[in-house]
Amino acid sequence: MVSAPDDGVRVDRRYSKVRDIVPMEVIDQQAAREYEQVKQEAIAKHTLVDEDDPQVKRLREIGIRLLPQTVLWNPRAGRWAWEINLIRSKQVNAFCMPGGKMAVYSGLLDELNLTDDEVAMVMGHEISHALEEHARQRAAQAEISNLGANVVSQLTGFGNLGNMDIGSNAKMLSLRFSRQEETEADLIGMDIAARAGYDPRAAITLWQKMGAVLKAGDEFTSTHPSGRSRIAVLQAHMNEVLPLYAKAMNMPMEKLPPYKANMADLHDAPVDAGDEDLQHPLKK
């Protein structure tokens, strides 16, 4: 069951009973299987980066600081068998499957020259998708489409699919989240990172970099739309998370130093047309 801390960011979270047709345990099990497949494919292609690589150590050290904060938003996260791996690829992307199975593609770090603060924002964002059970919601909707509404309605009391293996329509890495879910992940990820001692102002430069460096149609921009509207939401909630960062740094708010980006010529991101239906899954 997801929860929320008393302080920090305020998020308009919207849940649907539809997700209850797929038990969280089923989602976790499938995610673990798919994650192992991803790892084995990377091993076969010699693209799974060794554990002693500095970038792997960097990701896991950031993770060590982030993960204790996750239970504030979802107590189940304290029981997850977390994994964080780096895959060598030009792809600019990252993901965190249900159950805490996370991977970062090296292109994300290299192309955007990310600082630790910005990496923490990416990781916090992806972790938040898992905490908020967004994949469960999308998997349930995919199953309704796959099985047919009539079949689902015949399940006991609009109940769940038990131990049934969810179909190919709901593969973890193929799921697309909605703009509303992306906003939730942005804000909760920023909150988690701030509590862990990472500057939340890095969330702004992260998405400015996305807009400046990446092209429309790239994997990350197609499933994680950047734009002025997205940055505006982050900025609107900045005063809620800066005190968390100051507390983590054991520093009065007025003593926080000005934030400095490590990349020049960062301007407003491109105008983002947005979606009329904030609940509709984003499409590539």
Rank of each mutant, 00 (worst) to 15 (best):
residue 122 V to C: 03
residue 122 V to Y: 03
residue 123 M to R: 08
residue 125 H to N: 14
residue 125 H to W: 09
residue 126 E to T: 11
residue 126 E to N: 12
residue 127 I to S: 02
residue 128 S to C: 12
residue 130 A to N: 01
residue 130 A to M: 05
residue 131 L to G: 01
residue 131 L to C: 04
residue 134 H to R: 10
residue 135 A to T: 09
residue 137 Q to W: 09
residue 139 A to M: 15
residue 141 Q to N: 15
residue 141 Q to W: 04
residue 142 A to F: 00
residue 144 I to P: 03
residue 145 S to H: 10
residue 147 L to Q: 14
residue 147 L to G: 04
residue 148 G to S: 08
residue 149 A to D: 11
residue 149 A to N: 08
residue 154 Q to G: 13
residue 156 T to R: 15
residue 158 F to T: 13
residue 158 F to V: 10
residue 160 N to D: 15
residue 161 L to T: 09
residue 161 L to Q: 10
residue 163 N to G: 13
residue 163 N to R: 14
residue 164 M to F: 06
residue 164 M to H: 07
residue 165 D to K: 14
residue 165 D to F: 01
residue 166 I to E: 04
residue 166 I to V: 15
residue 166 I to G: 03
residue 166 I to W: 01
residue 167 G to D: 11
residue 167 G to N: 11
residue 167 G to H: 11
residue 168 S to H: 07
residue 171 K to Q: 14
residue 172 M to S: 08
residue 172 M to K: 00
residue 173 L to W: 11
residue 173 L to G: 06
residue 173 L to V: 13
residue 174 S to W: 12
residue 174 S to C: 00
residue 175 L to D: 03
residue 175 L to N: 04
residue 175 L to Y: 03
residue 176 R to V: 02
residue 177 F to T: 05
residue 178 S to R: 09
residue 178 S to M: 07
residue 178 S to V: 11
residue 178 S to N: 06
residue 178 S to I: 09
residue 179 R to N: 09
residue 180 Q to P: 00
residue 183 T to G: 00
residue 183 T to V: 04
residue 184 E to K: 02
residue 185 A to W: 00
residue 185 A to Y: 01
residue 186 D to T: 02
residue 189 G to Q: 05
residue 190 M to F: 01
residue 190 M to P: 00
residue 191 D to R: 12
residue 192 I to T: 15
residue 193 A to G: 08
residue 193 A to R: 12
residue 194 A to R: 10
residue 194 A to L: 06
residue 194 A to Q: 12
residue 195 R to L: 07
residue 195 R to K: 12
residue 196 A to V: 08
residue 197 G to Q: 11
residue 198 Y to D: 08
residue 199 D to T: 09
residue 200 P to C: 08
residue 200 P to Y: 05
residue 200 P to G: 08
residue 200 P to V: 04
residue 201 R to A: 05
residue 202 A to T: 12
residue 202 A to F: 01
residue 203 A to K: 00
residue 204 I to L: 12
